[in-house]
Structure formats: structure tokens, C-alpha cells
């Protein structure tokens, strides 16, 4: 492990629109640190993932040491530290979905794209070479009554079968 500090070549900046959104967000909180999660979500929406440049910028905006940002980013599975596909597929793998054959859906997606399931520390192995899809297992998505369920980015799909999954994925640009 080297002790050489990395140099950030291209600093991250919010787009004008997102900067306005950030300034609106920050008003809602008593201390700047409290705006960490929405700010990170906003940054991830723009940059695709939380790169060191993003962490540095968010730390600067919230007037915190950069480690406090890293701390939060590694705690939550919703933040990515590596590039991910345009569509992040989260297959719920908790008990009710397991009983309703979520495994079939998962295996189907794996075969369809010839990818593995991504892990938090290795997102690349679950991402298609064209960077369109990333496949993740997920803890309970709180829709057990319509199991098995899958989330693709922010959309929830219910009562899935491999066939229905195909239809959904093929319909994505």
C-alpha cells in the first residue's frame, strides 16, 4: 500500500441547476453536515458515482474533513465508489422474495448479460461491458406482498418472472 497522496486531476463541480438545488437543500438543515445524504445523492446523480473528486467537493461544500464524507459513502450501499451501469438492477433477496423464486430472476439476468452479481467492493464484475446495466442483490425492498420485486434505478417492479424481467429490461433504452 503506497503512501503517495493521489492528485485529483479534474475537480468536480455541480452543474448550475444542481448547485441551485444544493443551495435550496442546505437551507433545510440546522447544520451543514446534516445535508450530507441529499448532497451525495445529488452529486451521484450528476457524476454517476462518488469519485474522490466528488468527495472532496462535497466535503468542501459542507465544511467537513473529507474522511467524514468517505465514512458515509462506505456506510450506505446506495452510494457507489466506482462507475456503474446506466441502469442499476437491485434484485431483492430477502426471505419473502426468496420464497417466491427471486433466484430464478437473478439467474436469468446473470445469464442474459453474462455478468456476475456485483459486490460493494467490486461493482465491475456485475456491470455489462457497455456499462448499461449493473446487477446487485438487495436487502428487503419493503414490498413483500408483491414478491419477488426488483428495483431498476428508482422504479420498483412487482410479481416478477424471468419473462416479465426480459420485457422490462428490453424496454430500457
Amino acid at each position: 500500500m503506497s503512501n503517495e497522496l493521489i492528485q485529483i486531476e479534474t475537480p468536480f463541480q455541480f452543474s448550475e441547476e444542481n448547485q441551485q438545488e444544493f443551495e435550496r437543500l442546505i437551507q433545510r438543515y440546522p447544520v451543514k453536515e446534516a445535508a450530507m445524504l441529499p448532497t451525495l445523492h445529488l452529486a451521484q446523480k450528476q457524476a454517476g458515482y462518488i469519485s474522490p473528486a466528488v468527495m472532496e467537493h462535497v466535503a468542501e461544500l459542507l465544511e467537513l474533513p473529507v474522511m467524514k464524507v468517505k465514512d458515509v459513502v462506505t456506510f450506505y450501499p446506495m452510494f457507489f465508489e466506482e462507475p456503474v451501469g446506466k441502469y442499476v438492477i437491485r434484485v431483492c433477496y430477502t426471505l419473502p422474495c426468496a420464497l417466491r423464486d427471486c433466484k430464478l430472476v437473478l439467474e436469468h439476468i446473470k445469464q442474459k448479460f453474462d455478468i456476475d452479481v456485483a459486490s460493494e467492493t467490486d461493482l465491475a464484475k456485475g456491470t455489462t461491458p457497455d456499462e448499461k446495466f449493473t446487477l446487485l442483490k438487495s436487502e428487503c425492498l419493503a414490498s413483500c406482498d408483491v414478491a419477488p420485486v426488483v428495483m431498476v434505478n428508482d422504479d420498483l417492479y412487482k410479481n416478477l418472472t424471468p419473462e416479465k424481467m426480459d420485457e422490462i429490461l428490453d424496454g430500457l433504452e
Binding site: P52, M55, M67
Partner: peptide
């Protein structure tokens, strides 16, 4: 970094474990 039983003390690093500080 990380959570639960995988908690580790660390300095901020990028994804390849190179330090930012």
C-alpha cells in the same frame, strides 16, 4: 469505513486504496 462487523478505521482513500489524506 464500511459498517457493522466490517467496520474499519481508515484515512480517506480512493477505490484503489490510494490515500487522499
Amino acid at each position: 469505513i464500511h459498517r457493522g462487523s466490517h467496520d474499519e478505521i481508515d484515512i480517506p482513500r480512493d477505490h484503489d486504496e490510494n490515500p487522499l489524506r
